[in-house]
Amino acid sequence: MDSIALPAGNPARASEAGAVARRSEALAGWRLAGPALALLALLILLPTIGVVALSLTDFELGYDNIHFVGLDNYLELLEDRTFLISLGNTLTYTVIVTPLSVLLGLGAALLIETEVRGRALFRTIYFLPVVSLLVAMATVWQYLLHPTIGPVNALLRLIGIDGPNWLGGSDTVLISLALIGVWQAVGFNMVLFLAGLTAIPRELYAAAEIDRATTAWDRFWLVTWPMLGPTTLFVVTISVINAVKVFETVSTVTQGGPNRASEVLLWTIYQEGFVYLRVGYASAMTVVFLAILMILMVLQYRALDRRVHYT
């Protein structure tokens, strides 16, 4: 800078002009971002703050008086058996659904990718559960899994197995719901993986072939799996979120039963907030629910993001 000869003038004024220009540019930036920021605040930030605020009160729908109760709602949660069971069940459900739906989705995508004929047909078939209304399909599953008239148990009887009461037994209900969840999620994950697969440069497979990676197994570990990293991270994230949010099947098929064996977080929140109308308490649960999701996402990206993006 010092080698540039400024025209005879006041350098202080020049820097002042620069500051004005910077300020007006900053102002323009805020004005351009304004609409998006306003909507963000209105639609996401305010409701979240509202929920956090309500969770610190004893507000119940239909009662006029509302008191600030501090962290009482949260302390109550710690001793609420229903909530703790619900937390555990949601965890179990997620642990079953996420890996199964991710692996089956990847498998389906790999098989469809190698098949030239009928690719569109298979893609559509696998995607059907995603677009079908789960509430409507839940009744079909209820019929399929019925202990006496259901086709599943009828098939099991044919090979001499006495099938359990899938949705009625407290040992099997969560697994049955998880399988329905997997059935619904596989198609979606498959479509995401298919998109990821088409983005892999063909030359890498050619190079792998030249480098003697001759078996499908070798090519998968040398090219496909590492190149799908970003896709896999995204699919796992979406799968976890969807699994933690399980609600439709529970609400239509089991209502949390039998004996709270299928009580899950969203169902418990719904019961507290909309059936017992304890909005303050339900809000505290919602805050916990959001916190769990946030922590999961942060952990996942901290741990994996660096390792799946190579550029």
Partner: peptide, 18 residues
């Protein structure tokens, strides 16, 4: 290709990025 005992250099280099 693997049985041919030949090596190839690609235009895009086709290195394994990971």
């Amino acid at each position: 290709p693997s049985e041919r005992d030949i090596a190839m250099v690609f235009q895009s280099y086709a290195l394994y990025p990971h």
